[in-house]
């Protein structure tokens, strides 16, 4: 019985159906965090066209904004940002020791608010491109 059997951590993701609310909140928070950092590192280079000149800057931004795919991605970005903000607020309250026993409800509320804001913003983002 010397060698113990290591089942590894792979089974963790195989068990996603058994994840609890707090676990999902963590998974989503981490995922949205990666997206936002990635976006930040793209956002600054795009804005860097301002170093070249005013016309290049205007042309780049308006050029990107005229692509339907960019508009759709922007709705996604908004949803990601809103969730990260809402769940981040939830986590701050948890850090302050407030509402720990209601952590599941507050996670569902974060999801719901994210969904509402994302859906409500669709007309604003889509207008003028389709």
């Amino acid at each position: 019985m010397e060698e113990a059997y290591d089942r590894g951590v792979i089974e963790d993701f195989g068990r996603w159906r058994e994840f609890s609310a707090g676990m999902w909140a963590w998974v989503f928070h981490k995922f949205t965090g990666w997206v936002l950092v990635g976006y930040l590192f793209v956002h600054i280079p795009v804005l860097s066209t301002a170093l070249v000149g005013a016309e290049t800057y205007t042309a780049t931004i308006q050029g990107l904004e005229s692509l339907p795919i960019v508009r759709v991605l922007e709705v996604g970005l908004l949803a990601v940002a809103v969730f990260h903000i809402m769940n981040g607020t939830r986590l701050l309250f948890i850090d302050l020791g407030i509402g720990l026993e209601r952590q599941k409800v507050s996670f569902y509320a974060s999801l719901l608010i994210t969904a509402i804001i994302a859906v409500a913003s669709v007309p604003t983002f889509i207008s003028g491109v389709f």
């Binding site: 016309e55 205007t58 491109v129």
Partner: peptide, 18 residues
């Protein structure tokens, strides 16, 4: 987000505004 997508629309951004 609010400023640059809802108040001013991103598509209308020009260098002068920025």
């Amino acid at each position: 987000f609010f400023q640059l997508h809802f108040v001013e629309h991103a598509a209308d951004i020009e260098f002068a505004g920025t």
